[in-house]
Design a protein around this nucleic acid. Structure first.
Length: 344
DNA sequence: AGTATTTGACCAGC
DNA sequence: GCTGGTCAAATACT
């Protein structure tokens, strides 16, 4: 059995033990909050209503919905050689990432110290997913503009245009500023022609040498969307994993972070989800952005979501009348892209 | 008291 | 000179 099968099987087994789970972040790229699709990322099950899949390319009034106005979307859909929408790949990779994180958590719980080969493997899966997501996000930048060498951090550290030390900008438009990393705000600037200020964040683990930064600009659209540009790579044990570790129960994780306040903030988030089946992933990231400027430090695991996920005994979403499908079916080969996206 | 955030100042590119 | 990215002191928060 391969690693992926292992993760999927594990996730499916875990879900069987707990068929109902709280709301889970949905990848922003799928957009609409009331489209009827459901995503149980924690347990690795993904349900999507066919009507939502059809909305891609047919237009949707929701500004952040992938089906809206479909010039950009069709461009994105065409952007992959295999004809697979980038957004869907991102979604699946995010799911894989979460499953790997969950696997790591379970392995850690089974044998806390020292980290075993299995845990290293889980971490490797997590890292691979993260890199694919980063690569795909970079390939679908909103502006498509290339940054000059001086902006890419090849120059000595300075106050150059573009965050210092940045290697590349990966720009994306999402409906939440939460992305699974812990960021520390270090600046804010009013930008000419923009109603909202631009916010500057760096990784909270900067003291560990992590040079990742991001720039957040709220669009003037309604509802709010955020254009987030990422610079540099997370070197803080792959950022997301570290952040997730912080959110785990203390009996499982001793992260050793000197960042007490950040840890405390995450723990407060965890408290809100006491009793949920997977606090490490559910606990954080449920604060939505309100007002003009999201001044909060993002702690979330994953992008925006708003709907409660109701699952039946098999762990399949039952949000609507249309027949749902699960990503497990897809991964097992019972569903293919055509059946998902072209079905009436 | 320690840490995070805010915000005006500074700096460099354009 | 204007703009935007960063710094750092002041302030707020826990």
């Amino acid at each position: 059995m391969g690693s992926t099968d292992h993760v999927v099987a594990l996730a499916a087994n875990c879900h069987a033990a707990s068929p109902r789970v709280p709301a889970i972040p949905r990848a922003a790229s799928w957009g609409s909050t009331n489209s009827g699709d459901t995503y149980d990322a924690t347990w690795g099950l993904y349900c999507i209503q066919r009507r939502q899949a059809r909305s891609i390319g047919s237009g949707c009034p929701t500004p952040t919905c992938p089906g809206r106005a479909s010039a950009d979307r069709s461009e994105e859909l065409d952007s992959m050689a295999l004809g697979i929408p980038v957004a869907v790949v991102l979604e699946l990779m995010a799911m894989g990432q979460q499953s790997a994180a969950h696997l790591g958590e379970l392995l850690r719980a089974a044998s806390p110290t020292p980290p075993g080969e299995q845990q290293e493997l889980a971490h490797e899966i997590l890292r691979c997913c993260g890199r694919v997501i980063a690569a795909l996000s970079g390939g679908s930048t909103a502006t498509g503009k290339k940054r000059k060498a001086v902006e890419l951090g090849h120059a000595t550290p300075s106050k150059r245009r573009g965050p210092a030390g940045a290697e590349a900008a990966r720009e994306m438009t999402v409906d939440t500023t939460e992305d699974g990393y812990i960021w520390r705000k270090y600046g804010q600037k009013d930008i000419s022609g923009c109603k909202h200020p631009r916010l500057y964040y760096r990784c909270a683990f900067r003291d560990q040498g992590c040079g990742a930064t991001r720039r957040v600009q709220q669009s003037q659209e309604e509802p709010p969307a955020f254009v987030i540009a990422y610079y540099g790579e997370h070197t803080c044990r792959d950022g997301a994993a570290a952040c997730q570790d912080l959110a785990m129960p203390p009996t499982v994780v001793d992260h050793g972070s000197s960042n007490a306040a950040a840890s405390a903030a995450v723990w407060r988030g965890a408290d809100r989800n006491m009793g949920s089946p997977m606090p490490a992933l559910l606990a954080v990231g449920q604060r939505s952005c309100e007002g003009d400027a999201p001044s909060d430090t993002s702690q979330g695991w994953s992008p925006a979501f708003s709907s409660e996920v109701e699952l039946d005994a098999r762990g399949v979403g039952v949000a609507g009348a249309d027949e749902p499908w699960t990503v497990v079916e897809f991964l097992d080969g019972f569903r293919d892209w055509e059946s998902v996206f072209n079905s009436p």
